[in-house]
Design a protein around this nucleic acid. Sequence first.
DNA 1: CCGGATGTTCACCT
DNA 2: GAGGTGAACATCCG
Length: 265
Amino acid sequence: MPELVEVERYRVLAAQVAGWRVAAVEAPDPLVAPDGARLGAALTGRTAVGARRRGKLLLLDTSGQTLGIRFGMTGTLLLDGRSAVDGLLHAPAPRDDRWVRFRMRLVRGGRARVLALSDPRRLGRVVLDPDEAALGPDAAAVRPAELAAALGRRRPGDLAGPALKARLLDQHRLAGVGNLIADEVLWRAGLDPARPASGLSPAEVRRLHRHLRATIVDLSRWGGSHTGELMAERRPGGRCPRDGSALRRGTVAGRTTWWCPAHQR
DNA sequence: CCGGATGTTCACCT
DNA sequence: GAGGTGAACATCCG
């Protein structure tokens, strides 16, 4: 379920344990939390300091090392058994205890809280000191010049080059945009997902930037990546909410992509 | 039973 | 080296 919009909610949730001391760590799934023993040893006894986010990566700083959580497609963060996205979920509700792949008990003044990762599909990852520098600028705060840089410049002799959507999804260049946000942004900006990214005019880059930022604000307010205007039409027979054209479905950058052939150019 | 899924990574092409 | 494609990961859902 998580793209940047969801992970930001997780960050707010995780920030609640700032000042609490880690009393115990459970990492029973070696796929999701490789080297769980080292994780426990590093974190136990440390105090949580604060929570940050870069793209889809959640970072929990402690008095020792930093805990990094990636949520994959179906991961959800729980605090005391409750999710930050309860009632807004598109993915299965985190009701099943079998889906808890990582759990941390924190204490302060005789009270205890539990921060946990629920992830049915087990594509999430829990690691120590993740490489934050490998991620591009955060999409929620990206500036126009940074977006232009992320799209890349046309090199002499290049006729085509990578697709616009592929660049938006490339976490090394721009962090936080996932498949649903990408389609929503491109639909709003009236840009064809398969267009060469380096072929955008300066005016188109500014338009894309404006819609990227506005989309993230809107989806955050409305409740998640799946609350976009295009979302309801991502189905056979779906029509463009703007002009009523039949939407197209295809594969761009290896992901299922929906777009309006009439107004996305 | 089958197809698809909000992500990342890797092998293998061109 | 750069991009694209497809598979893999493992599980649930419609």
